[in-house]
Design a protein around this nucleic acid. Structure first.
Length: 258
DNA sequence: TAAGGATCTGTAGAGCATAC
DNA sequence: GTATGCTCTACAGATCCTTA
């Protein structure tokens, strides 16, 4: 909707462009206006004001001169272009943040995968050594494992007391104790490495989060200074700029740059 | 300090949707 | 069918920043 009002004494005319809410599309919540120079004020412009017959949802601009239409088009397109750029910038920032988070998650999963593989390898080696001590071949390994599992006992050989393990394995308790101590040290070392790497990843993530947030905040502040646009706090949702009396008096007003 | 790249900004055109 | 709105994008000028 466009409301044209004549200034005092007919010195100037204000093109007031109100907001339009169109579903998901970005719209202006407040009207914007541009001050036309006196030379562009036409005589018939006062015939269409805000007070009068029911307004069309899309106002006919027949009361505007071609110059005024072109100027209005320039203004709206200027705002629309800046809105589109801000939206694109916000989207890019969101995608960059997503990339960082996914890379971090990927690194964590890689580390977890490596540690689990190492643990599996050490357990297989330990299992093989114990079998060699017991003189078991590979053929009867499955039934014994199944028997251990079906008895409801702790299936892991490293779990439980050394005496019970010694009874099961029929080896001296000192050997079992030494093996359990080695396993304990190994698992403690693995836990320590995992903790340190997790902490380093958290620090890495926190650093990048802080850095990207500072960058986006500075960009937003820079844009807000030049265009008086505003953003929702802590989010990427874009609020259209409030252009109060947008016109030649604005610092960034450069309408005839080309 | 000049050159050159990066970024910002305004403008115009195209495409599509909508109201009449 | 026409006028208008909205969005996106290419283009060009302005501005900023780095570097030799």
């Amino acid at each position: 909707m466009v409301v044209v009002t004549a200034g005092t004494g007919g010195a100037h005319k204000v093109l007031l462009i109100s907001g339009k809410h169109n579903g998901s599309q970005t719209a202006f919540s407040r009207p914007i206006s541009v001050v036309l120079p006196a030379s562009q004020v036409s005589s018939d412009s006062d015939s269409n004001t805000s007070a009068g017959p029911p307004v069309r949802k899309r106002q006919r601009l027949t009361h505007l001169s071609p110059e005024e239409k072109a100027l209005r088009r320039k203004l709206k397109n200027r705002v629309a272009a800046q809105t589109a750029r801000d939206r694109k910038k916000a989207k890019m920032g969101e995608l960059e943040q997503q990339v960082i988070e996914l890379e971090l998650e990927n690194q964590k999963l890689h580390i977890e995968n490596r540690l689990l593989r190492e643990k599996t390898s050490s357990l297989l080696t330990e299992n093989e050594e114990l079998r060699q001590r017991l003189g078991l071949d590979a053929l009867d390994s499955k039934p014994k494992v199944q028997a251990l599992l079906s008895n409801g006992n702790d299936a892991g050989l490293g779990i439980g007391s050394s005496e019970s393990a010694a009874l099961r394995l029929r080896v001296p308790p000192q050997q079992v104790q030494a093996q359990q101590s080695l396993n304990l040290k190994t698992s403690q070392w693995i836990r320590m490495v995992l903790t340190l790497q997790t902490m380093s990843l958290i620090c890495y993530w926190a650093f990048w989060t802080s850095l990207t947030q500072r960058r986006s905040l500075s960009l937003v502040n820079q844009g807000a200074r030049s265009r008086r646009c505003c953003w929702l706090e802590g989010g990427t949702q874009y609020l259209p700029p409030h252009l109060h009396l947008w016109g030649p008096h604005q610092l960034s007003w450069r309408p005839l740059m080309n």
